[in-house]
Design a binder for these strands. Structure first.
Length: 908
RNA sequence: GGGCGCGUAGCUCAGUGGUAGAGCACUGUGUUCACACCGCAGGGGUCGCAGGUUCAAUCCCUGCCGCGCCCACCA
């Protein structure tokens, strides 16, 4: 055992221990007979790098995983990465662009080959970074959403959904991203408020009898208008219903129809209908009997103007980008005199969350999942409590979304992803099958088949993660033992994207919920509360924090700040503070080492007879109990604060101080045991420094990572011992405060006079005797009292007893002499007054102020309690124990006040 | 428009129907053989505002003010 330096080097410890844990398979020790415990990581994008949100997410998961492992469970933390369709395709395309190569020029085969190559070279960054954080995942079985096994699960899920009639192909409007040229789901669209305009147009009636006004934020779509709608109850337009309009520019004849969608209160009450380019209008068109295939389309995949089916769009507009087209159309309307007026207006505009371009409602054939049907059991699972959501308040959001869920568009016009297992015949028939042979069998011999070129939404596959990683659809394996997972941890920002879809898919595919508990944490924000973003430049790099303070400090910070239902505002000062905590622990261990305190032999606390030892054993057990409760409730902040307070404020500040200079065999055993319990309980939060100290402090059967979590109630402790130490702590604190306030020089040593009377005079014969049990208590505590209160002798007035606290010797003192003692700072604890005889040394004015202040506080409290007790309704109606407590408190405060008054009187 | 959350010490946040807590920051101080990334002591809050329920409200209820987020087809 080498001597520990004053501070330690986190980087060296972290690298060394992580390599050893992983190398020795300690993240997944073989425990076939233990209770299984399972969590799956939200698979980070393979393109990703660790950001602070990951750091929080992973820290919380690692805390639970390490805790479960210490509890002896067969803890499995499934890890892997997500192929992240669009994101990855983007990265590789960008790389290709540097070589002046386009995706199209490579072709699909070669392109996807390049993506795999990229993944092999660069895809490991995020997983290396997870290791730096200390994540104890099962790396030996790392998965990828596009590995063979997982891909089989994806195909299987698709086919099964199709067989169940829960997945279908449909032609309707989708959210089209013209930048990526793919459909995206509702969730991938974010609505932004942008400054736009509201154009009022006068559409002429075909019979020349006038016009009807409509207003639009998208005038260019009038090229594909197919009707004007008015509300059936709108009397203003009844006479026009059924008449034709001759559209400006195209000259198309369109009818005036009635539809509830038209709101008489808005604008003119008449609205233009463009079924091929607006979600509302699509529905209006459907109700008017227009089939999707007959709806006019005026845009191509790049959102450029194309000729409509009726050939009426002027050639001058063909090929224009949608925004250029808008200008051109407006100019022409203005020239024709059909533009009535233009208003400025804030418009809710849909943007692609990845591309950042305006999303276009576009008519295409896509695959849809019948989310509404899947949502039923998923709602029920939460409502019935089969899945517990923490914090519970999120259930409302969950229900609200689930109950209004729309069909989920799962096909994407990309190359990187799970290719959809559907084959088309030339006649338009579609065959969904597990492979081409099966599809061919369905289609019949000789039918030429072409596979659907599209791939699946990345979230379709990640929804299968909790069971697809465990071997599903194969039976057996890890599945029965580790599914459902115990808990899932994710940020609330992916509640709909991922969590809800896992629940739906899990229930549909396995008949069981994917996890028993869903824990949702908040976002990590900067110190001012702003959302972190690359563009704002306020991101905090977790790896930089690890470099500066160590992974332990960062982890502890995130855990301590993780209170349920709240975002985290990360302040680097906090990380620094917890780095200091790690150093504190390190130095406590140095002290231990220097005093021959080493590792303990087991979970059972050593037998303790000394009061200080008994006290710390009881405190330790209480701490274990609090930790167990906090972790069971997923109260990460509470757990972190509990062990922090215990280690620093109890163990270091008091226990180690109390045992200094009196480290005997029993104390060595107890101190070693307590320190070990601290290391174990702290290990999930600060795995590295605790593991290092565990190794340095003793010869161990096992590294800390696979040690045993403490038992809360290992040994019954005599409560009297705790009472002694708690009393001592109060006395020492009061003595220190008194000394400081009256400016006693820090180095000065005093005597401690003990006085059992409230009366001002304390000369010989005037005071009652000091209770024997107090004398005995002081004798028991004499050494720590001597050391911490800086008193050498206890003088029991009127008892003829003085005790030398160093030796415990009773000095023979004549009764008469005792009344002549000088005055000094006075301390009142319960029914006892203590005096530090320092007359002449102290600042009498300051002492008077101090006592007066204490008296005022005690009197105020006494009077408040007296008032309460004087209230008849309180005595009658309050809980009896509340009344009793008020009485006891009142009496204690009254006694204290009385003694403080006497103390003041003694000062003269 | 609907929903959720927040408003407690200078800052970041816990918390409880019955005398307000932590960390950081701040002030003073350094006797002590682990630690100045430390010790000891201290100052600092009408718990957003207004009503209500209650013997008692920072905590429960209602309203209001302020802040944040999510969802939603006013063309």
């Amino acid at each position: 055992m080498s001597e520990l330096p004053k501070t330690f080097d986190p980087a060296e410890i972290e690298a060394r221990w992580y390599a050893r844990w992983e190398g020795e398979g300690l993240f997944r020790p073989d425990r076939p007979d233990a209770d299984p415990w399972t969590i799956v990581i939200p698979p980070p994008n393979v393109t990703g790098s660790l950001h602070i949100g990951h750091a929080l997410d992973v820290t919380l998961q690692d805390i639970l995983t390490r805790h479960a492992r210490l509890k002896g469970k067969d803890a499995l933390w499934v890890v892997g990465t997500d192929h992240a369709g669009i994101a990855t395709q983007m990265v590789v395309e960008r790389n290709l662009a540097r070589e002046n190569v386009t995706r199209a020029s490579l072709g699909r085969e070669a392109f996807t080959q390049r993506v795999w190559e990229w993944k092999a070279e660069s895809g490991g960054q995020i997983t290396r970074q997870l290791r730096r954080l200390g994540a104890s995942c099962d790396w030996a079985n790392e998965r990828f959403t596009m590995d063979d096994g997982f891909s089989r699960a994806v195909i299987e899920a698709f086919v099964r959904l199709h067989e169940a009639g829960l997945l279908y192909r449909d032609k309707r409007l989708v959210n089209w991203d013209p930048h990526f040229r793919t459909a995206i789901s509702d969730l991938e669209v974010e609505t932004r408020e942008v400054q736009g305009k509201f154009w009022h147009l006068a559409y002429p009636l075909a019979d020349g009898s006038g016009h009807i006004s409509v207003a639009t934020t998208r005038p260019e779509t009038m090229l594909a208008d197919m009707a004007v709608a008015v509300n059936p109850s709108d009397d203003r337009y009844t006479h026009l219903v059924g008449k034709q309009i001759r559209l400006p520019i195209t000259g198309r004849l369109i009818p005036i129809v009635t539809d509830e969608h038209a709101d008489p209160e808005l604008g003119s009450g008449a609205v233009k209908i463009t079924p091929g380019h607006d979600f509302n209008d699509f529905e209006v068109g459907r109700r008017a009997g227009i089939e999707a295939r007959d709806m006019l389309n005026m845009l191509d995949a790049d959102a450029r103007i194309i000729q409509t089916a009726d050939g009426l769009v002027p050639d001058t507009l063909i090929g224009l980008d949608r925004f250029e087209a808008r200008k051109a159309v407006v100019a022409q309307l203005e020239a024709e005199g059909t533009l009535e007026r233009v208003e400025d207006r804030v418009i809710q505009t849909p943007y692609g969350d990845r591309s950042g371009v305006v999303i276009e409602p576009w008519l295409t054939d896509q695959w849809y999942v019948d989310a509404k049907t899947l949502a039923g059991p998923a709602i029920e699972a939460v409502r019935s409590g089969t899945i517990k959501v923490v914090p519970e308040s999120w259930t409302k959001t969950y229900y609200n979304w689930m109950e209004n869920i729309q069909p989920w568009c799962v096909s994407r016009q990309l190359w990187w992803g799970h290719r959809i297992p559907a084959w088309f015949a030339e006649d338009g028939r579609v065959f969904v099958a597990r492979d081409e042979a099966q599809a061919q069998a369905q289609a019949g011999d000789g039918v030429a088949l072409t596979r659907d070129p599209d791939v699946l939404d990345t979230w379709f596959s990640s929804a299968l993660w909790p069971f697809g990683t465990l071997g599903w659809p194969e039976e057996g394996g890890k599945l029965p033992r580790h599914y459902p997972n115990d808990v899932l941890i994710s940020g609330f920002d992916i509640l709909f994207f991922w969590d809800a879809r896992m629940i739906m898919q899990g229930l549909q595919m396995t008949g069981e919920v994917p996890f028993r508990t869903l824990y949702l944490h908040g976002l990590v924000r900067d110190a001012t509360g702003a959302k972190m973003s690359k563009s704002k430049g306020n991101t905090v790099d977790p790896l930089g924090l690890i470099d500066r303070y160590g992974a332990d400090a960062l982890r502890f910070t995130l855990a301590a700040m993780e209170s349920q239902g709240r975002d985290i505002k990360l302040d680097e000062k906090r990380v620094e503070g917890y780095r200091n905590f790690a150093t504190k622990l390190w130095n406590a261990s140095r002290f231990a080492q220097a005093n021959g305190i080493g590792g303990s032999s087991g979970r059972e606390p050593p037998a303790a007879t000394g009061i200080v030892n008994q006290w710390i054993v009881a405190e330790t057990q209480a701490t274990v109990h609090r930790m167990d409760l906090a972790i069971a409730d997923l109260r990460f902040d509470e757990a972190a604060n509990t062990i922090y307070q215990f280690a620093w404020s109890r163990f270091c500040d008091w226990y180690l101080e109390l045992i200094k200079g009196a480290v005997d065999e029993e104390t060595r055993a107890v101190a070693g045991w307590v320190l070990d319990q601290i290391l174990v309980m702290l290990h999930p939060f600060m795995p590295f420094v605790t593991e290092e100290l565990w190794g340095l402090l003793g010869t161990r059967k096992t590294p800390l990572i696979t040690a045993d979590w403490p038992m809360a109630d290992a040994r019954a402790i005599d409560p009297a011992a705790s009472a002694d130490v708690k009393w001592l702590i109060r006395l020492v604190e009061e003595v220190r405060a008194a000394r400081t306030e009256v400016n006693v020089p820090p180095a000065a040593r005093t005597e401690l006079m003990v006085l059992a009377t409230a009366r001002a005079g304390y000369t010989a014969g005037s005071a009652p005797p000091v209770p024997r049990d107090l004398i005995a208590r002081i004798e028991r505590l004499r050494l720590p009292l001597r050391r911490l209160a800086r008193v050498d002798r206890a003088i029991f007035l009127n008892m003829g007893i003085e005790i030398d606290l160093e030796t415990g010797e009773h000095l023979d003192v004549s009764r008469d002499g005792q009344g002549e003692r000088t005055l000094g700072p006075q301390i009142v604890i319960d029914d006892m007054t203590f005096i530090l005889p320092l007359e002449g040394v102290i600042d009498v004015g300051a002492e008077r102020d101090r006592l007066a202040k204490a008296l005022a506080a005690a009197a105020k409290e006494r009077d408040a309690l007296a008032g309460r007790l004087g209230n008849a309704s309180f005595v009658e109606r309050a809980k009896p124990e509340a009344v009793e407590k008020a009485r006891a408190d009142h009496d204690a405060r009254a006694a204290e006040a009385e003694r403080l008054e006497a103390a003041l009187a003694r000062l003269g």
